[in-house]
Simulated assay, not measured.
Amino acid sequence: MSAFVLHLVGAFSDIDRQDVVDAVGQGAVYALMAVGIGLVFGVLRLVNFAYGQLIMAGAYALAFASDRGWSVTVGILFCFGVVLALTLAMDRLVFRPLRTQSPAVMLVATFAVAFLLQNAALLIDVRDGTIGEPAASISSLNQAITVWGVDVRKIVLVAIAVAAFSLAALALLLAKTTIGLQMRAAAADFPTARLLGVRANRVIGFAVLLSGLLAATVAVILTVETPFVDPTFGLKPTIVVLVGVVVGGIDRLWTATLGGFVIGFASDIIYAALPTDQTVFLDSVLFALVIVVLLVRPAGLFARGRSSLVERV
């Protein structure tokens, strides 16, 4: 084991600029996922484990559009429509009726929704006798271009740009708009916010809608990177991001986002450092580092002082 660790440390010296750029792109995608998860947690105190299945549904929509020969633009719009419809249906049919129940009940409900969507996708997928659908029409976005002597995939640049724009727009929305201030108030103290006139359904619905928009965006990016969709599509990234959110500090949106970025960046850098025949150890190395971080900083890597549930956004 010590020899493996020494070999891993030595391998980091071989990482080049292209590996770093790819890792930043991966971190940007995971940061977007962390924001989507953090928005719902902020107003509902709920970790939505069905988030990965929303991404999967969007990926299947892209594969369906590709199979029908639709243009890339129409396919992306269809993806957004499917994900947003499922997100709003989840809020209206599951989150809203169970809002007064305990967090454990709502958590179990998200697991049920996740498995429902995954098995629905499986039943639809196996109609042709195979599992998995290609989404070839958007694969052109994964071509590489040369930037300052580094071959960078177009989708990596798109992911970084979209993440930067989305985070900046979200920061402005939370700080400068009425609905954003209401979301912050609801995240800080929901009962008091309602007594002061904040409309619960409106605030929660808006947060869930933003979460769905981010899920659809991630679905497009991940499908471009891996244009083959199956019922487990998006599941592993969601699990990794959930871990990153906890590592960063789930109590605040910005710490959760940083946690998502860091774990995405770290996973790509470690993967690049590992020899091809040892990439199977990626998850072991990554989660071992997570355990170390949580032992040292149980409140989160970016949390200030003790963990607090007062300010989450």
Score class of each variant (00 low, 15 high):
R194M: 12
L309P: 08
A288W: 08
Y51K: 11
A136M: 11
A256D: 08
A163P: 05
R199N: 07
L46F: 08
S66T: 08
L209A: 14
K176Y: 12
L222I: 06
I291F: 14
V105E: 09
V126E: 12
A273V: 08
Y60E: 08
G75M: 12
A169V: 05
A273Y: 06
P275H: 04
L44D: 09
R252L: 03
V198N: 00
S137Q: 10
T255V: 14
I55W: 13
P227F: 03
V113E: 00
K154N: 09
M1G: 15
V147Y: 03
D189A: 11
T177L: 00
S102H: 12
I250N: 08
T255Q: 10
F228G: 00
G38N: 09
V147M: 04
G52S: 14
D277F: 09
T100H: 15
R45H: 13
G305N: 01
F111K: 13
G27H: 10
Q278R: 07
V9R: 07
L282V: 08
F287M: 00
D22L: 10
W254V: 04
G248H: 05
S211P: 12
A164E: 01
F206N: 02
T87P: 10
G249P: 04
F64G: 09
R96E: 13
V220K: 01
R68P: 04
G25M: 06
G42P: 05
A256F: 02
